[in-house]
């Protein structure tokens, strides 16, 4: 800090406190709502103090779900979300790291072409090519499968670029020393490159886990069978139905449970999260 300005310091803290409150407010209201019984919402205003129905609400949602909205238990939906998030994160990391390895450490015909094919996927977010991608997945018979849920989201130019960047900063001599030490390409990858990229992998994993967990449109399209619902899309199906007959406590309980895992990941692994965020966008 350049000079002492008590007023500016006060202003800074005031802005921050206000920011924290604005950020926390919706969550607070949602959580409070989830602790009330359905009748508490008929009075005309959202309650702002905790109710006594929390155990009941969460217990019912986790074990039974909401039959009226065709919703399976949240425990199943969260399990599906977990499968999707882990598959997408691990799958993306796995295929990106090996393709980056091929691009950086080998020279082969059509290497340039392969690089550009991967590169242009950057320009094709799923929302843009949604309908034709859906048709492809449908024609491959992958609707309502975990494969259909995850594989189309697995290719990622961003992760490939990240690993390419990481590999380029690893000194050439390390690979040369390994070659002289008798390590072939696979051994070098496994013994040297992978352990050296641990931190980058962990950081990327945090980002991709959140990305995977929060997928919405894609699961909405490819799952019609409730047993494959994920919680983030499930919440919407539920909200659609309850418009006429608001069961806010259940919706908000679902919202809290839907955001809990990724938020916990961010808070507990903040360092890795920040590293991952900044690396993937640089």
């Amino acid at each position: 800090m350049v000079e002492k300005r008590p007023f500016l310091n006060f202003l800074a803290h005031a802005v921050l406190v206000l920011g924290v409150l604005i950020v926390a407010f919706p969550i607070y209201v949602a959580f409070i709502a989830s602790t009330h019984g359905p009748t508490d919402f008929l009075s005309g205003l959202i309650p702002l103090t905790p109710g006594d129905n929390m155990v009941n609400t969460y217990g019912k949602m986790m074990t039974d779900g909401m039959a009226s909205a065709g919703m399976p238990p949240l425990s199943l939906q969260m399990f599906n979300s977990l499968i999707m998030a882990l598959t997408i994160a691990i799958g993306k990391i796995a295929i990106s790291i090996i393709s980056a390895y091929a691009i950086v450490y080998f020279r082969f015909p059509f290497r340039g072409l392969a690089f550009w094919l991967i590169f242009i996927t950057l320009m094709l977010p799923v929302e843009v090519r949604i309908l034709p991608t859906y048709h492809v997945v449908a024609s491959l018979g992958m609707l309502d499968t975990y494969a259909g849920l995850t594989i189309p989201l697995i290719a990622s130019a961003t992760a490939t670029f990240l690993f390419r960047q990481v590999f380029l900063t690893i000194p050439d001599e390390l690979m040369e020393a390994a070659r002289i030490d008798g390590a072939g390409p696979l051994k070098f990858f496994w013994d040297i490159l992978l352990p050296m990229s641990r931190n980058n992998i962990a950081a990327l994993f945090v980002i991709l886990f959140i990305y995977g967990w929060n997928q919405y449109l894609w699961p909405l399209l490819v799952t019609t069978d409730p047993s494959h619902y994920t919680i983030v899309m499930g919440i919407k199906r539920m909200a659609d139905v309850v418009d006429s007959q608001p069961q806010w406590n259940y919706i908000m309980a679902t919202a809290i449970l839907a955001m809990l895992p990724p938020v916990l990941v961010v808070i507990l692994m903040q360092k890795l999260f920040v590293k991952g965020l900044i690396e993937t966008e640089k």
């Binding site: 001599e173 390390l174 040369e176 020393a177 002289i180 030490d181 390590a183």
Partner: peptide, 20 residues
């Protein structure tokens, strides 16, 4: 012949030690 099979050892300027 591959470097590993030439029966040589090399010391690099930046040492190239495996950091992990």
């Amino acid at each position: 012949v591959e470097p590993a099979e030439r029966d040589i050892a090399m010391v690099f300027q930046n040492y190239a030690l495996y950091p992990h």
